[in-house]
């Protein structure tokens, strides 16, 4: 497992291939968009998806907690797929969250899917979490500095050898960081969607999640699309000229 360091303002953070950001100076870990109980929410609407999504998501979170033992764990909102999600959580999963909360300070940042504190679960619920020079909130705000957020579930497509590899990713510049979604059933929004690109007027970098490492590419944001145009001619082999990143 190798993590990638970035700087947000004056703070040094580590991006984790499991989808978390670590702030060593504060012993803090943040993850985004767990969307717990998305499966049962879909079931209520008639799609009986396999019911293990909350368990699978908590498995991922537990692995990250075991690996890094953060003093503070910030869940960046949309931790539950809907308002009633926390109430539907099975006993076994509630218990696991309880155990986690004994090992770390659990901070529930509220999101648009879960605008209220999760009932009957340990930890503190806040609209935003501010620490040192950084603010942790669900959805990025235009113009913010030193901001860590989730909400968009960014993913990126990389053309390679005639195929396209699509992965969830971090998006970052020197002012803000957007995390990929951690939930087992959370899909993604392409980083070129204006909703994400508009937040990065000067471009930045994307970090795609891989097995035990991240893959990093330059990102144009809302700046001129088509990095290939900016590249020296002839540097990419045929068929690789379509990089948008």
């Amino acid at each position: 497992m190798s993590a990638a360091p970035i700087h947000l303002g004056a703070e040094r953070l580590m991006l984790e291939p499991g989808g978390a950001v670590l702030w060593p100076a504060q012993k803090l870990m943040a993850v985004a968009d767990l969307h717990l109980e998305k499966g049962s929410a879909a079931a209520a609407k008639g799609s009986l998806l396999p019911p293990w999504d909350s368990a699978a998501t908590l498995d991922r979170l537990a692995l990250l907690l075991r690996r890094h033992r953060p003093a503070v764990t910030v869940l960046l909102g949309d931790s539950f797929h809907d308002r009633a999600g926390a109430a539907r959580l099975a006993a076994a999963e509630r218990e696991r969250l309880g155990l986690m909360a004994r090992a770390t300070r659990l901070v529930w940042v509220l999101g648009n899917h879960d605008p209220e504190a999760p009932s009957g679960l340990p930890g503190e619920a806040v609209a935003e979490f501010v620490l040192g020079g950084l603010v942790f909130r669900h959805q990025a705000r235009p113009g913010a500095k030193g901001e860590v957020s989730g909400h968009f579930h960014p993913k990126a497509s990389i053309p390679a050898r005639g195929a396209t590899v699509v992965r969830p990713c971090f998006v970052a510049d020197s002012r803000r960081l957007i995390l990929p979604a951690l939930g087992a059933y959370t899909g993604g929004l392409d980083v070129h969607d204006p909703a994400i690109a508009g937040l990065f007027p000067r471009g930045g970098r994307v970090f795609l999640l891989g097995q035990g490492r991240l893959f990093s590419f330059p990102y144009q944001g809302r700046a001129a699309r088509g990095a290939a145009e900016a590249l020296p001619a002839g540097t990419l082999p045929a068929g690789q000229g379509a990089f948008k990143l």
Binding site: I158, P159, A160, R161, A163, V165, R167, L208, G210, F215, S216, F217, P218, A227, L236, P237, Q240, F243, L245
Partner: peptide, 10 residues
């Protein structure tokens, strides 16, 4: 492996 290759190229 494909991603790693693309990363190096870019």
């Amino acid at each position: 492996a494909l991603l790693a290759e693309a990363e190096t190229l870019v």
